[in-house]
Structures are given as structure tokens and as C-alpha cells.
């Protein structure tokens, strides 16, 4: 990962501020049960998307590490998981709050929710696994292999299984997805920039963490 230019960070700030203002102010479809909470799409859903993107980046760096054996790639794989977990936790907590007001409970037995919980636990196990090694080379290799497995698990549990059964989430189990009633064209104008904005924010934070770790190693 190269150092991110200032322009990247400015774009991130613009996108996030656009999301915060337009996300609260644009006209949204008036739907029962959802009411104004439909705006959570710009914050809750994008938070998950950011996590998925960061985990994808981690997956790529794990493969890179297996090919190159470079410690830098292993470090990046670890940091992407760490920052991804922050966004995932945000997605889960906000989702629980949203669920309480629309589905009537903080947790409902929905395959998407349980799948997301399993995926988060799989990534938590990655952190535990990493800490159980004394040897750096062994840690890098085994963690990279596990990380590839965890990513596949996440895709399976969050994107594939919920689609095969009934789920309360849009786009699953016969529910109309974004192309359906719940995302009209004005919402798209905020939703897409919001997704990019939150992903960029995740990349920015990861870059800061990466630079911190690099400096730490150089000071030794």
C-alpha cells in the first residue's frame, strides 16, 4: 500500500460530508414501518460495505503474502482485518438499533443477522490465531491461509446463504433488492457516493495504522 495522497483524503471528507448532509435532507420514499429510518441505508448498509471491501483487501494481501512471504503484506492483511472489524461492529450495532424500531427486537432470527455474526466471529478467531504463534514466519503463513478461509466463509454466510432462505433483508429470499421499491433514483445519488466515502475512510484509517506500525518497526 502506497501512501495515500492528500487529494484522496480531501475527496473522502467531501464524500462523507455529502453523505451526512444530503443523506439527512433529500426526499426519501415515504414507507410505513420504515418511515425516516430508510435513511439508515446511507449509514448502516454502507458501513457493512466498507467492512466487506476492507476484508477483500485483507484477502488480497494474504494471497500476496503467501506468494511473496513479505512481512509488509502480512502486516497489511492484519490491519485491514482490524479496521474492517471496526466498521463491522458499527454495522452490527447500528443494525441492532434499526431492527429494534422496525422489526421489533434488537435481534431477530434472520439468516443475514446470524450469518453476519458468524462472519464476525470467524474474523475474531483470526486475531486469536495470530496471537498464538511465537514464530513470525509461521504466523504469517498460517494466518494468511486462515484469512482466505475466513473471507470465503464471510461471503458464504453474508451473501449466499441468506439468499437461499427467507430473510427480512432486502434482496434476500425473494425480497426485492435495491432495484425494488426501497431505493429510488434520488436515494441512489446519495447511496453510491456514501458507499465510496465510507470505504475511502476505512482505507485512510488503515493507511494511518500502517504508517504507525512501519515507524514502530523502523525505530527498533
Amino acid at each position: 500500500m502506497k501512501k495515500l495522497p492528500l487529494s484522496f483524503k480531501i475527496i473522502t471528507i467531501i464524500l462523507v460530508f455529502y453523505t451526512l448532509t444530503a443523506g439527512l435532507l433529500i426526499d426519501v420514499p415515504a414507507l410505513n414501518i420504515l418511515n425516516e429510518t430508510i435513511r439508515n441505508l446511507f449509514f448502516h448498509v454502507t458501513s457493512w460495505f466498507s467492512m466487506v471491501f476492507l476484508f477483500l483487501a485483507s484477502f488480497v494481501y494474504s494471497i500476496k503474502h503467501l506468494r511473496s512471504g513479505s512481512e509488509k503484506d502480512d502486516l497489511l492483511a492484519r490491519l485491514f482485518v482490524q479496521v474492517g472489524m471496526v466498521f463491522g461492529t458499527a454495522g452490527m450495532v447500528t443494525g441492532m438499533l434499526w431492527a429494534n424500531f422496525t422489526w421489533g427486537s434488537y435481534w431477530v432470527p434472520d439468516p443475514k443477522l446470524n450469518g453476519a455474526a458468524i462472519a464476525m466471529l470467524a474474523y475474531l478467531a483470526y486475531a486469536v490465531l495470530r496471537n498464538s504463534f511465537q514464530d513470525n514466519i509461521q504466523r504469517g503463513k498460517v494466518s494468511a491461509v486462515y484469512n482466505i478461509f475466513a473471507f470465503v466463509m464471510m461471503i458464504l454466510f453474508v451473501f449466499i446463504l441468506p439468499r437461499m432462505t427467507d430473510s427480512l433483508h432486502p434482496g434476500n429470499g425473494g425480497n426485492p433488492a435495491f432495484s425494488g421499491y426501497d431505493l429510488d433514483n434520488t436515494m441512489r445519488m446519495v447511496f453510491y457516493p456514501a458507499t465510496i466515502g465510507w470505504i475511502f475512510l476505512g482505507l485512510w484509517i488503515t493507511e494511518l495504522r500502517f504508517r504507525m506500525e512501519t515507524i514502530k518497526q523502523r525505530m527498533k
Binding site: P29, L31, N32, Y181
Partner: peptide
């Protein structure tokens, strides 16, 4: 229910 109410379109907004 969500789908039917979506067609209703007289939900309370702020």
C-alpha cells in the same frame, strides 16, 4: 406486510 404498506404510501414522515 412491508410490501403492501409500501404501496400504501401514506407513512408518517418528519
Amino acid at each position: 406486510l412491508t410490501f403492501i404498506s409500501a404501496i400504501g404510501q401514506n407513512a408518517e414522515m418528519a
